[in-house]
């Protein structure tokens, strides 16, 4: 191997080594950049605003991570979250605290249905979830003829575990997101589901030939994504004090961006929850930071769209993919 030494020094391979750390570098640069421009931004009060924003987004992105890692996509998350906000707002007055588990269960079932449609009926996941998302949006709109549902006084009280500041004045959504992140990390590192998801994402034919039930784990991933989206919707409803059919609109792009900016490959295989934590923080800092720097809220989607293209461009090793569909 006379030219091995030259290969190792080539910029392409050097970049391959740095690639996994680019999201973390980006996060640090963003913090420094905005911090220098607006030192107020780094005050604990403002940081906690960013983290609370990130917490809700993270619920959606955490579930999406597994789906993307398996090579699919879940476009129903924002519809699922909005639907869940309506369901929880409707249920709280009648069933009390039970509303929370029921809502998440409904999200799980919705996700499993998307997975079933995708895997068993062999419909591409982006179509399957676009369709189930449409169905959920329709149901949300039908519930109160398109109107939102306010959480009454009692409902707000039942949501204190979400809206309160139990530890050192930190909004509860932040520790809640931490628990979800740890749960995701555990799932991924120490369970069959996490291991087999990684195997299927990185090499589905090989995983199948090793006897792994590919269909089962794919459906499970969509179920998880549905449950996570529903949980995100519940947090959002609690924060805003009402459920609404369009509550989580505008969250789909940031959710996908959070997963992909973190470094999970949109083509599947490479990815993990840790990356999504970083990605979510980046997206939230950009969101809040833009507001802070006075960027028009309507212009923010432009930034996300651009960031998404850039992130996918940077994170995928395109040499392994023959045809980009």
């Amino acid at each position: 191997m006379a030219n091995a030494g030259i290969d190792r020094m080539s910029p392409g391979l050097l970049f391959d080594r740095v690639r996994p750390y680019t999201p973390v570098l980006l996060l640090i640069l963003l913090l420094l950049g905005i911090g220098i421009a607006q030192p107020d931004f780094l005050r604990p009060k403002d940081l906690s605003v960013i983290l609370s924003d990130a917490a809700v987004l993270f619920e959606l992105a955490a579930g999406m991570t597994f789906v993307i890692m398996l090579g699919g996509i879940d476009l129903s998350v924002q519809a699922g979250a909005s639907f869940a906000s309506m369901v929880v707002a409707e249920l709280l007055p009648s069933v009390g605290y039970l509303a929370f588990p029921i809502t998440i269960l409904i999200g799980l079932v919705a996700g499993l249905s998307s997975g079933f449609v995708h895997v068993r009926l062999r419909i591409p996941s982006f179509i399957a979830t676009l369709a189930t998302g449409g169905i959920m949006t329709g149901l949300s709109l039908l519930m109160e003829a398109g109107q939102s549902v306010s959480l009454q006084q009692a409902g707000r009280y039942q949501c204190v575990w979400i809206t309160g500041n139990l530890i050192l004045g930190i909004p509860n959504v932040i520790p809640i997101a931490c628990v979800v992140a740890l749960g995701g990390l555990f799932l991924q590192r120490y369970t069959r589901f996490g291991r087999f998801s990684a195997a299927i994402g990185a090499g589905e034919p090989a995983a199948r030939a090793a006897g792994i039930s590919v269909a089962r784990y794919k459906i499970m991933a969509f179920g998880l994504s549905g449950a996570c989206a529903a949980f995100g919707g519940v947090l959002l409803a609690a924060k805003l004090g009402s459920g609404s059919p369009d509550l989580a609109n505008q969250l789909l792009l940031p959710t996908i961006a959070a997963v992909v900016v973190g470094g999970t490959a949109i083509t599947g295989g490479i990815g993990n929850i840790g990356l999504t934590v970083v990605g979510t923080l980046i997206v939230s800092i950009v969101r809040i930071g833009m507001t802070f720097l006075g960027v028009d809220i309507f212009a923010q989607q432009i930034v996300f769209g651009t960031a998404l293209v850039f992130a996918v461009f940077v994170t995928i090793d395109r040499s392994k993919i023959a045809i980009i569909k």
């Binding site: 590192r189 120490y190 369970t191 069959r192 291991r195 087999f196 990684a198 195997a199 990185a202 090499g203 034919p205 090989a206 995983a207 199948r208 030939a209 090793a210 006897g211 792994i212 295989g269 490479i270």
Partner: peptide, 27 residues
């Protein structure tokens, strides 16, 4: 179909029988 090329040697070896590497349902 033989190996998941981008996963490790150890992961590929236990792919068909993860039970051997699990205790109390945890890897």
């Amino acid at each position: 179909e033989g190996l998941v090329m981008d996963l490790s040697v150890a992961v590929n070896m236990t792919l068909a029988n993860l039970d051997v590497a699990m205790s109390r349902n945890i890897i």
